[in-house]
């Protein structure tokens, strides 16, 4: 596979950038802690959920070179499960989110076993087809509530103790979940396991000849990505107190691809930036209906033709060029 085009800048591998990333993350968290003072918390929670979703997706495309066009199945299915567990079974929020995430992990294991049998373009088609299958299942299954979805999911006290009914309180829970997800991914890509993933991305035959069981690595990465996408979806269901078909559609899979592409595939912060931009755009264009689709299409075309590295990728490249000059 020739995935050189998707490669992150080599500078990212240098020591020092690791610490720089953590500093940036600390600043982001600090901003996140005070942000609700100026910005509507529900909007922030939406951005955080989608940012985590995009981060999970980016783990596959950016660090293993696998383009999944069906990540909405994990996001949306986990949303349904956590919504149902909380509403119908009376689970507490943390257990509901856990249930949704666990189901996404199992779904990721099953679909991952199938999808990793093909590479490149076929991988994208297989994941898209599998997610469409999950979509049809959700349309027909009783527990999803069909066209209505699962509505009015209650927000019970966290651990049975902490009241999270207000949006502000819930926001800090979402922020904590987001930080947890980010750190899991960050730890993964900087671990020996993550190095092997990058080796597979760069040159799969060589990784095989070095004795790595490539399929096992890919599968584990796929399950991890699916699990975190599920975590994002399960959280989102509790934020909006709603789980619906929208979250399982192929359009949703396309949206997370777009977020990651705009922010920068294979960059640590790209998906967060991308999610912020796309969600903000959707917020402002909510009244324009079909134009959202057209504009998203245009962004796809422009990014693919003109700046494939994405926003964060371009900044990194500019930074590296400047550093080399000095």
């Amino acid at each position: 596979m020739s995935n050189a085009a998707i490669t992150a800048s080599p500078a990212a591998a240098k020591t020092g950038t690791k610490n720089r990333d953590l500093v940036i993350f600390a600043v982001l968290v600090a901003v996140g802690l005070v942000a609700p003072a100026v910005i509507y918390p529900v909007f922030l929670m939406k951005v955080l959920c989608f940012a985590l979703f995009a981060l999970a997706f980016n783990l596959l495309i950016g660090y293993v070179g696998l383009l999944s066009f069906g990540h909405a199945m994990f996001f949306g299915f986990a949303a349904y499960v956590s919504g149902y567990a909380v509403k119908a079974w009376g689970f507490s929020p943390e257990l509901g989110i856990l249930a949704g995430t666990a189901c996404a992990a199992v779904l990721g294991l099953v679909t991952g076993l199938l999808a990793i049998r093909r590479q490149g373009i076929y991988f994208a088609m297989v994941t898209l087809a599998l997610s469409q299958m999950v979509f049809f299942y959700c349309v027909q299954a009783k527990f999803t509530g069909g066209e209505d979805g699962i509505q009015a999911i209650p927000r019970r006290a966290l651990f049975g103790l902490i009241d999270i009914k207000s949006d502000l309180a819930f926001y800090y829970l979402v922020l904590a979940i987001f930080c947890f997800g980010f750190l899991v991914i960050w730890r993964t890509i900087h671990s020996p396991f993550g190095q092997v993933l990058k080796a597979i991305r760069e040159n799969e035959p060589r990784a095989i000849s070095l004795g790595y069981r490539v399929d096992q690595y890919k599968l584990l990465a796929f399950v991890l990505s699916a699990t975190l996408a599920g975590l994002a979806g399960a959280t989102k269901a509790l934020v909006f107190q709603l789980a619906s078909l929208t979250d399982v559609t192929w359009q949703m899979s396309g949206e997370v691809v777009l977020m990651t592409l705009v922010g920068g595939m294979g960059t640590v912060f790209g998906p967060i930036v991308g999610a912020g931009i796309i969600i903000t755009m959707q917020n402002y264009l909510a009244g324009f209906g079909e134009w959202v689709l057209v504009i998203q299409g245009f962004i796809f075309v422009i990014v693919v033709l003109a700046f494939r590295k994405g926003i964060v990728g371009e900044i990194q490249a500019w930074w590296t060029r400047r550093a080399n000059k000095v």
């Binding site: 020739s2 995935n3 050189a4 085009a5 998707i6 383009l67 066009f69 490149g120 373009i121 994208a124 396309g254 691809v257 592409l261 079909e290 134009w291 959202v292 689709l293 057209v294 998203q296 299409g297 245009f298 962004i299 796809f300 075309v301 693919v304 033709l305 494939r308």
Partner: peptide, 18 residues
């Protein structure tokens, strides 16, 4: 990489359908 062709044509499909 082939994937960019897929992404570009996906974008075009969104524009046309929209």
């Amino acid at each position: 990489d082939h994937l960019y062709g897929l992404l570009l044509t996906f974008g075009l499909a969104l524009i046309i359908e929209g």
